[in-house]
């Protein structure tokens, strides 16, 4: 199976014979389909329904990606090996997500909690809901100084559901950020 297919001899795609010649209109039709999907993916979220947004925005994104891959990148006539290789790389990323989500994506878990993330979320809401009030008098001027910067460590280790104060710190907390 190791025929010395010479790459310079005009384009021989992987199927070995000259690529099936599609007329230009074939590609333009696919392009038009992609545009329609784009419009849908923009219109969908405007209706405000959470599930609909997810389906239209991300579902269509996956469909568009597959269309571009299959028709524009000619993966539909490419050797199967390429599909499997790209899929394997994608699976590696999914594997990374599965192993990491339990720690990075949650506020608390078995015997641990992230008090700073709770504080950060509250501060963020305040900083940005405050942002909404600004909406009135100025085109969403956002005071970047009010960025949520919650020094951690010496915070009261309270969680959203009730907390206890513990004062009296023997050590001055090191300034956590670049002096901001």
């Amino acid at each position: 199976m190791s025929q010395a297919a010479d790459a310079h001899h005009g384009h021989l795609n992987s199927a070995g014979e000259h690529g099936p010649h599609h007329p230009v209109s074939y590609y333009v039709k696919i392009w038009a389909l992609l545009l329609v999907l784009l419009v849908i993916s923009i219109a969908g979220p405007m209706l405000g329904n959470k599930v609909l947004t997810l389906v239209t925005a991300f579902g269509i994104a996956v469909v568009k990606a597959l269309i571009v891959a299959a028709f524009f990148m000619h993966l539909n006539i490419e050797k199967k090996f390429v599909w499997y290789m790209l899929l394997a790389m994608l699976l590696a990323v999914v594997m990374f997500f599965l192993g990491t989500a339990a720690d990075v994506m949650k506020y608390d878990g078995s015997h641990w909690t992230k008090p700073t993330s709770y504080l950060y979320t509250e501060e963020f809401k305040k900083a940005f809901s405050g942002g909404e009030e600004h909406e009135g008098h100025d085109a969403d001027e956002f005071d970047s100084k009010a960025l949520p910067n919650v020094p951690y460590g010496e915070t009261e280790s309270h969680k959203a559901q009730g907390s206890h104060k513990s004062e009296g710190h023997g050590l001055p907390a090191a300034e956590p950020r670049h002096g901001t």
Partner: peptide
């Protein structure tokens, strides 16, 4: 993939990012 997965995890966790 690594960059977007990190973003997705943070985005799902911090709902208030929607305002940002």
């Amino acid at each position: 993939g690594g960059l977007l997965v990190s973003y997705i995890m943070m985005r799902i966790m911090y709902a208030p990012w929607a305002e940002a």
